[in-house]
Nucleic acid binder design. Structure first.
Lengths: 135, 135
DNA sequence: CAGAATCCTCGCCGATACTG
DNA sequence: CAGTATCGGCGAGGATTCTG
């Protein structure tokens, strides 16, 4: 039957893609860095430990759900620690682990490139769009 | 009407988020780096110019559609050039621009971090999952 | 205050078919 | 061979509500 061929193809593609991921650890990390919220939270924690509510305020644009979800991911990857203080209103602090801190220079490298070349990118975009509009 | 309040809130969030993006060029770039296909194509072009079909084979897992779409984005950002040779079967070559090449060290930095710390991440994940399963 | 569970929307991506 | 257009499925993520 050709009915399932579509699904099969999809599975095949997925496997090919995952094979790509598997053979290169960089892609694994990229899966992490790619997450915009992850990046933002990581940056927010760079200056020091923060509470859940503080992060919510700092990140600006993140939903409570996404924030929690993101923090869980970071915790799982060993990039942040979650410290729970059992007071009357529960208090939870998040802080970077050494591993998480070791990632900051990488972020910094990205940011540096961006700050150096962003204008060039903007110009390229404008040129491209202008050409499209004109042509 | 309260009908549009949800939509309005969404718009508000979006504006807040975009404000975040605007004030930090790094986020703009991250939007680019975040795209998995972009990264893969960029890496595929690192060794030298490639034709459309070659890229399709190299990237493995990408659809023709995604490939074209990705290449357009890269072109727009000024990271790759698209050279069209008008022979009988049309020939198109893609190559990195200097700007695109300048991005390679950043990719390399990411990859390096990954290769150095990936095991630690894996261990952290395993530990986290184990604790979850046990608890 | 921290976060878990639910519903629902929206946009990405794949498949397919057609042009030059 | 390179590229565009259209349709459809699926999953990520946002709003909302409820617990401890």
């Amino acid at each position: 039957m050709t009915t399932s061929s579509a699904a099969q193809r999809r599975a095949e593609r997925a496997r090919a893609y995952n094979a790509n991921l598997a053979e290169c650890p960089g892609h694994d990390l990229l899966g992490t860095l790619s997450d915009k919220w992850l990046t933002l939270v990581l940056a927010a924690l760079a200056d020091g430990p923060r509470r859940h509510a503080e992060l919510a305020a700092t990140v600006a644009g993140a939903t409570q759900k996404m924030l929690t979800q993101t923090l869980r991911k970071l915790e799982r990857e060993g990039l942040v620690t979650r410290t729970l203080t059992a007071s009357v209103p529960v208090r939870v602090d998040y802080a970077l682990t050494p591993l998480g801190e070791s990632l900051l220079p990488v972020q910094r490298a990205i940011k540096d490139w961006a700050e150096t070349h962003i204008e060039e990118v903007h110009r390229a975009r404008a040129a491209y769009d202008a050409e499209r509009a004109a042509g």
